[in-house]
Amino acid sequence: MTAILEARNLVKHYGDVKAVQGISFHIEDGEIFSLLGPNGAGKSTTISMLSTLYAPTSGDALVGGHSITRQPMQVRAVIGVVPQDLALYEDLTAHENLNFWGQMYGMSGQSLRRRIAEVLDQIGLADKATKAVKTFSGGMKRRVNIGVGLLHKPRLLFMDEPTVGIDPQSRRAILDMVKDLNRQGMSVLYTTHYMEEAAELSNRVGIIDHGRMIALGTQPELTQQVGQDETLRLHVAAEADAAALADALRAVPGIKQISTTDHEVVLIVPEAEEALASAVGHANAIGVKIRSVDIQEPNLEAVFLHLTGRALRD
């Protein structure tokens, strides 16, 4: 397989802000690659450079064999971009938006009309095509935003957090659409801060934090970093309870990592069932009531926690 994208040591500074500090990765032709990272990690900045909107402070990338710094026009013909924030004309209808953007990608006439009909079907808005976008729900607008990026059948599609702030049903539809597009041969660069989305969609995942790639590989490769350890989540009634329980558990041998997020104590342990028994005992001893328990096999969230000591989402 050949790489459709090859980023080499990309750096972007906005004045004093070092948004991206040397990121390298590649995307195989035909794969879905996810960039997973918390808010402000540098995901959008990376996409802006790769899509030739901003010139990198240093570094370069090849997209479809063209340099983003020296051949931006050729790069633009290869890629489709779905920006994080909606970029549509709200006073135009869905159809008019698609028509306008299609023309900006050099499409016209019969082939454009056919393609618009296809895309409208794909995003499930064929029956709303003649309504102004401003009358749409958030989820519908997101779908039009995606449709615009798909029109010219790009070889590589950049999707920057396409599911932020929408209902679960629309989110499901979008994830299915991404998988569908990929089956038809489109390569995808997908950014998100939802571990579940990266896990569901991608072959390989890059975990990005503070402008650096802190982990990169297939999901099994990444989860191996935390070993076979499991994550045990103990949900308690009050925040003070979580802190008290965490303190009580620190003395217990075999617990590799303890952290708390509001009403939860999160333990990384080799054997969750074993740890659970001892945790319940300690909770009873200090009079803390455990409301619910969740055991997770090694996952990307745990990888992030392991590497940064922080949760992916706060």
Binding site: S51, R76, I79, V81, P83, W101, M104, Y105
Partner: peptide
């Protein structure tokens, strides 16, 4: 501000 200008600029339009 509404993102359509950046979007135009990443399309193959000078």
């Amino acid at each position: 501000a509404q993102g359509t200008l950046p979007r135009l600029l990443v399309s193959p339009t000078a």
